[in-house]
Design a protein around this nucleic acid. Sequence first.
RNA 1: GUGCCUGUAGCUCAGCUGGAUAGAGCAAUGGAUUUCUAAUCCAUUGGUCGGGGGUUCGAAUCCCUCCAGGCACGCCA
Length: 558
Amino acid sequence: MYIIQLLNDLIKSIIKDKYGVENCEITITKPPEDINFDYAINVAFGLSKILKKNPVLIANELADELKKENKIKEINIEKGYINILLDNEFLKYEIFKIINDKTYFKTNTGQNKKVNIEFVSANPVGPLNVVNGRAAAFGDTLANLLKYSGFDVHKEYYVNDFGRQVKLFGKSIEERYYELHKLKEKAEIPEDGYKGEYLINIAKQIDLDRENTLEEVKNALELKQLHDIEDFFKTYGINYVLNWQKTTLENFGVQFDEWFSEKSLYENNEVENVLNILKEKNLIIEEDGALWFDTTIFGDDKKRVVKKADGEFTYFAGDIAYMNNKFKRGFDIIINILGPDHHGYIKRLEAIVKALGYNENCVKIIILQQVNLLQKGEKLKMSKREGRLVLLDELIDTVGKDAARYYFVMRNPNSHLDFDIELAREQSDKNPVYYIQYAYARICNIFNFATEKHIFVEDYDFQEIDFSKLEKEERRIITFLLDLPAYIDEAAKKFSPSFFVQKIYELVTIFHFFYNKYRVISNDDKITTLKRLLIMKALRISLYNCFKIIGITPKENM
RNA sequence: GUGCCUGUAGCUCAGCUGGAUAGAGCAAUGGAUUUCUAAUCCAUUGGUCGGGGGUUCGAAUCCCUCCAGGCACGCCA
């Protein structure tokens, strides 16, 4: 249990015993900088409303009770706020725990609940672009935050390997293949097909992978096995692109637990089955030869086609089966991270959940707003089919994985993100990610220096280390570390990686300030040296954990 | 037309479940290194929180309205 929780419970029990009040909101924050206390408790205002009593009076009464707690050294009341200072021995004990307890930053808020988090899920028809990068960085960080706060997290990528898009994609490769081998003078790419140059590479790669392909294709053409040919190119293309995407994501530090195939939903009759369930509930309407799911009953503004008049299922039909499948696998929380063009989709997904009789509160849909790509200040229009887009691969190459991940995760999902490619390249050494990495490197260097001087804080029993004097900056670092689990919990609860990143930045700022003001290792003051080394050790471990959560490299040298 | 998102310092943004004097970075100006990495630190300049109304002890935050920008709107994915 972390300190904020502890204080919270303590105050709760005091106001219950003293005033009989149970549901009063307690806010515990950091006081403004000029106030030399560790925490500020804002509860007297709320209580004064309930008790019709002067807030300062209440604060004083609460302070008298709080003084009995041995973790608290000092209390001061100002404008109704209760400011408290923690006991130094208690702080030392916590630092000791951070260093020795590997689970210090993990909480059990999630109670091991099963979470399915689906993100990126780009169509397997082309490489990932920077927009997918935003989803990847956001989703992965959120997943890590949830893991730390005690959820059992399953990261999933939905592969749209079924339907019209992949069909067109396969056809486009097929045409490129004919062109390559002069079976046709020029590739006849379908109107809505894929014109990107990478398709030519895919066509070339086929021959490198499989020696007899050309012959097989020619034979099949003679035998008019057109369906088989189509299927071959489609399957090959999807696999090629999936491997590409996987490699890109791995370079970006993102790994999925499962790549879920849309096609499998059809092969296992899950789509048919789930539509039958809806039919039984009279939610399916037949109109103009097509089948519609009447989502308007559940708050959508229009009904949606699930099976077209030509007999083909829509993408939405697969989504219904997919959602059903997720619930059947026993997930308690289902998170779906979508792009900005999908905001109209929220109502539809909610309709699915309600129609199938599941608890709608289990589903959380997060819309990531648009990424505008700017080049020299001008907006780039992106289109996959035209093949004009900035690849995530390129971005990783030019600015690096760490900077890219940090950049994506530092803004909140609602903000439209302007991504200036030139600027991102130029700014590589101005990117704030270096600021936080530099802090880690500096700490590592302190320990290198200590080693040179043959000072090893590990050699000392922690009883021997003296915490009776703590500078303001030292206290700020220590209390910040104690609050990290709370921040992780809060970020997970808010689904807000950006909140967490800001906290890391804050912590690092405090460190840099401290570093400039004080020396950790001094020749003539062993007591202070040991105390500071101990704090630095805890800080290093803490930062290491933070970096792991947001997926950036803790560099020991810069 | 309807729905969703956004509007905060010159620029990019944080803060939005109401609470102490609205914060960072970049840019601009001035300063800090005999001693653990200056990719750092300190100071200064910069704000009618899009406009207007309302709710209350208190509003950037909640409600209403208007303005501006972006995105999406039934046989598409």
